[in-house]
Design a protein around this nucleic acid. Structure first.
Lengths: 199, 199
DNA sequence: ACATACAAACAGAATGGTCTGTATGTAATA
DNA sequence: TATTACATACAGACCATTCTGTTTGTATGT
């Protein structure tokens, strides 16, 4: 019964990590549901069940919280990418499988919705721009390299990575479109045309 | 000297038109420069050199002003499209020329920046969504029909309009990308790859 | 006369940042 | 080991700013 600190009192570091995680989770949910512009620190606190004092303690300014959220979005996306990367290294299936994965990653969750909100906001938010630029570059690089790895011959690697980047832009355009026209039917058809062209 | 109403006093209708035009112009400028989320009615009034009373007289609510701005954006874009339509009807040059026009229309002005801001905002703004949906559908239809008209044989018209829609989404993704990474070099290269594929 | 164009003040809500207060963890010391 | 000193975690009030919408008043066109 004299358990040291296993069940009763989390250490300070654990508390901090948990609190930051709760705040970030609430932030991502809010961006997905109400959009970047409507995401205020007060709403985040309410949703996370956290006092404003706690929030300002861990994230002194709104920007520090939002930038942490930006990095979290890309980190999660990167995790998904890594998964497919491992899968593809096992049984290399070619570019088309990669494109299908990117398609699914775009449209099943809401991470990409968040990311488009963030990118559009970054254009006119000088405090946000550097963080977004940096994380986006890293993400694009990762996807290009994934495309390169899907090419069978070394001579086609360069083209494969270019096609992958084109796919990313195309899908981003479609994600925005989905925000306005949710029905996916026509986009599915168009994307298969694109896959045919790329093959 | 007894000039009726030529130089001295504009008629009421002229005043109204002029005032609405000034407000819309200021609105579009603000969206382009500071983004949709930062565009408030107060800033619009200040920029247009108009009192808040005048603004609320012509646009009783913020939404009525913003929706008018949405329609204005698409109307201007449509004007550009019509120009190229006439040009193409004269000497039909094929899809590639159309794609080049779309590329230029995307990146030389800032209309498309505004439009991406609007589309992203519409996803989470119920009052905005119907107007955006409607105007965007019309624009997509217009561009598809333009693509159809660029096909030489009737059998290829369907495919031409599909390729045009794909191009639109691709370019929209690139416009957002430009907001974060302004340098255009790599995108120019990628777009020429896309044009090759589509040909 | 009557409606319209415009000006300006005002109200109520929301936001982000700061500040004070309190409880708890942590580490040095005696 | 017991006590003391300090840092950290969190709560909630407060404030200045900004925003949208309303209302009242005045001048001008029809």
């Amino acid at each position: 019964m004299a358990v040291e600190s296993e069940n009763k009192r989390p250490t300070q570091e654990e508390r901090t990590d948990a609190m930051r995680a709760r705040l970030l989770e609430a932030t991502l949910d809010l961006i997905a549901e109400e959009g970047w512009a409507q995401t205020s620190t007060q709403k985040i606190c309410k949703r996370a069940g956290v006092s404003r004092g706690a929030q300002t303690h861990h994230f002194p300014t709104k920007n520090s919280l939002l930038i942490a959220a930006v990095r979290e979005i890309v980190a999660r996306y990167q995790t998904e990418l890594d998964a497919v990367s491992d899968r593809n290294l096992a049984g290399a299936k070619g570019l088309e499988d990669l494109f299908d994965f990117l398609w699914n990653a775009c449209f099943e969750g809401n991470l990409l919705n968040c990311w488009m909100d963030v990118m559009v906001a970054a254009r006119t938010d000088a405090a946000l721009l550097p963080a977004v630029r940096e994380t986006d570059s890293a993400a694009i690089d990762a996807m290009r390299s994934l495309g390169r790895r899907c090419a069978d011959t070394t001579s086609k690697q360069h083209r494969a990575s270019d096609l992958t980047e084109l796919t990313v832009y195309l899908l981003r355009g479609m994600v925005v479109q989905k925000g306005v026209h949710p029905s996916q039917g026509d986009r599915t058809r168009l994307f298969s045309i694109w896959k045919q062209l790329a093959a």
